[in-house]
Nucleic acid binder design. Structure first.
Lengths: 255, 255
DNA sequence: CGGTACATTGAAGGGGCTCAATCCACGTGG
DNA sequence: CCACGTGGATTGAGCCCCTTCAATGTACCG
């Protein structure tokens, strides 16, 4: 039931929602954050948001849509580092270097809000509480990278695929983009392979195995996981690890 | 020319030195940071600093020595996530969860400085500039994780080993723990394998190949890389990626 | 209707694993 | 002073997971 007049205030911006889950935000801070995310720029599917080798004087917040961050090696092989979902900073850490270390490409049509470094630094100076919240939210992302790294280093192809699909499920659920057991995403087998260090044919066989076992159904960009528990067991996936996140009691006490 | 009386001020603490490379620190900030790192705790080799599953109400700064951060999987396999060198926060992101996600173990005798979350948050409130610097320094670490991830996903065994040894060289050089082409570290083949997702026998064969080619010499915990350029070419290693790091001009202008 | 993007399948090969044995240096207790 | 245990490096044989190469299928689109 969208209401045009109150749309903006009713539907908090993704970064605001994320930080509000971590700390209690004052009305002023909510306004400030929302305002920060107001200047949207649209990027069409398959277009680059950040290009390796270019220079940037700020970052972006992903408002809507999905993107991938990756590196192309000399021989043309691609390693996808992560899937970028609404509410996260695009350009960390790529844009913090003289010349961007990675590329970021829109997987769907996407809208982003540019935030210059000076703006970001100003925000930190004036609202250290937000800086702390942002830092804390980085811990969640760092944990996801670590899981990804563990998957590449020590897990089999089936485990990797299962793990990736489960992680996307949980992350999308957290931002209201997935229901209990399924989500919609233009996830090709090539993308899965490049994220997990696998070849396309083998991803295909792995997915077929999961499908034959009734654990995963992919059809028309709709990924369904009928038995989340069973797949989690197979993937050694701790559904809870992302939710076991917490701010220390000290934090709320201080403000 | 060591001078006992001024030892402390002359030899800044590792975290202070690191942040000073990123931003200009006031004398007061230097004092504050050094003081933060003054309460040392010793941890002997092979002892755990952080244990997976335990709860923590703060982090540590590694003052001296080397540690590893890792996860042990159900079947006993271990994936080392990174090597922890002096000046970095130990316990990010492990300690930010209700129960630590990873373990951290001392590789050498180590000294660490505990910093409670409340202390850390207080620091951020009072010195947002330091918060910014810390955030920026995280970007460097994030870049290293990404390179590690790329290695596991898309590089061959030789490339991985070469890359790891080079990365350690560059990082140790940055903190004065390595000379132009060698460093000292108790690096067993098992450690290398667990970091790179390889088996011990295969690490052995890979190292022998590198040794036969005259690219790497490991002897008595001393790692020597006679021809850094040649090894870098082999590993697709961008020696510069860690140094191409920068703060935006906007930052210095503001303060 | 031809082109493009993506999924699927087969055959063959190789990179890296597992298993297992051996070797070596070192420390320790008798 | 030697026997033994332990941590780590080394080497060999066999094999399997996953890759590469290549072909085919299929849906969609201009």
């Amino acid at each position: 039931m969208p209401s045009l007049s109150t749309e903006k205030s009713r539907q908090a911006r993704p970064l605001t929602r994320k930080l509000a889950q971590i700390v209690t935000l004052s009305a002023a801070q909510v306004t400030l954050l929302d305002e920060l995310q107001s200047a949207n720029r649209l990027v069409r599917r398959h277009r680059e948001i950040v290009t390796e080798g270019h220079s940037y004087d700020g970052v972006f917040v992903l408002i809507e849509g999905v993107a991938i961050r990756y590196r192309i090696l000399h021989d043309g092989r691609r390693q996808i580092l992560n899937f970028v979902l609404p509410g996260v900073f695009i350009g960390f850490p790529a844009c913090f270097f003289e010349t961007a270390l990675y590329s970021i490409t829109a997987l769907t049509d996407v809208s982003v809000a540019p935030i210059s470094f000076s703006r970001l630094i100003g925000l930190f100076e004036e609202h250290p509480r937000l800086a702390t919240a942002i830092l804390w939210s980085f811990a969640r992302e760092a944990a996801m990278f670590n899981e990804h790294l563990i998957a590449l280093g020590r897990r089999s192809a089936v485990e990797r695929v299962a793990h990736l699909l489960l992680e996307l499920l949980v992350r999308l659920q957290a931002i209201g983009m997935a229901d209990d057991s399924s989500y919609r995403l233009p996830l090709t087998q090539e993308l899965i392979g490049d994220a997990l260090g696998l070849s396309v044919p083998y991803v295909n066989r792995t997915l077929r195995q999961l499908r034959d076992d009734g654990l995963v159904v992919i059809k028309e960009q709709q990924i369904t996981i009928p038995d989340v528990a069973a797949l989690s067991a197979l993937a050694d996936f701790e559904r809870t690890y992302l939710s076991r996140f917490r701010m220390p009691a000290a934090f709320e006490a201080e403000s």
